[in-house]
Design a protein around this nucleic acid. Structure first.
Lengths: 136, 136
DNA sequence: ACTCAATTTGTAATCAATACAAAGTTGCAA
DNA sequence: TTGCAACTTTGTATTGATTACAAATTGAGT
């Protein structure tokens, strides 16, 4: 997605397309690494010398509320952000700490939905050792 | 589960059945309310006047490592504990903050499992407004 | 009882996240 | 363009859950 497209996307959601917001969403769309707030800050302060950690949190909350990103709490330590809005699960390696996406079929996801509630969001978190670390 | 049963359960897992550990596991098995560390502390300090918050965390980690309880991170704020080891998902109401269990069929859970990883644990978190809050 | 290791406990420290107010920016109307 | 009001960003101070740590206590085996 180009910055132009991000700008109009934000506008359609009623969010002022500020430089910082565009940069954060752009970064998350480009880097599907589920970064923490700190990682995001360190990356973007290069581009915006006055960038602030508070802005990361403010922006993330704004984008999450608008359904443009999701907040991942698979790691109890700190929250992570993901611009991948299509259906998928997250796998965290207990060895290297990396977080990987894995596909979940539409059918499998629908089967999960609890009968007595009407969930707005649904997250699937798996934990174990990733293939790479298993080889070690 | 009686305290006797909890005691031998701990023994079979190679965990010293101390008063505090028995009390924590007993509380979690009796109260399926997904309490926070603080809630657990306030409840148990009544019984053990010298009870400490640190013990809550120590004990929880020990029990979780042994597979006797699970740590729930559906709420980014603070972690919660659950002695329900059978298969189920968690629903958090964004209004009242309560967390409810909901059933997940064996089949549905197996369908989730990612092909490229071998997960050790799997959590399903749903968020929305619970029936009770929807009536308001 | 005695001893050594495991556990508990209280306090201090850590650190992610938030509160807040000042400074900066943007949109809009005249 | 100018000015104003609302919104955003930013830096600092604060909060609050969790962990580190060392002293005190408990427990198991001899």
């Amino acid at each position: 997605m180009t910055k132009q497209e991000i700008t109009s996307l934000l506008r359609t959601r009623g969010i002022q397309p500020t430089q910082q917001r565009i940069a954060v969403l752009d970064y998350l769309q480009t880097h599907r690494t589920h970064p923490t707030a700190d990682t995001l800050y360190r990356a973007l302060v290069e581009e915006f010398p006055t960038f602030s950690r508070t802005t990361v949190y403010n922006t993330a909350r704004t984008l999450a509320k608008a359904g443009l990103i999701r907040v991942i709490t698979i790691d109890a330590e700190e929250q992570r952000f993901d611009a991948g809005m299509e259906q998928h699960g997250h796998f965290r390696c207990t060895d290297c700490g990396s977080i990987f996406d894995f596909p979940i079929s539409q059918q499998a996801m629908q089967n999960l939905s609890p009968a007595s509630y009407t969930p707005v969001t649904m997250e699937v978190y798996a934990t174990g050792v990733c293939p790479h670390c298993q080889q070690q």
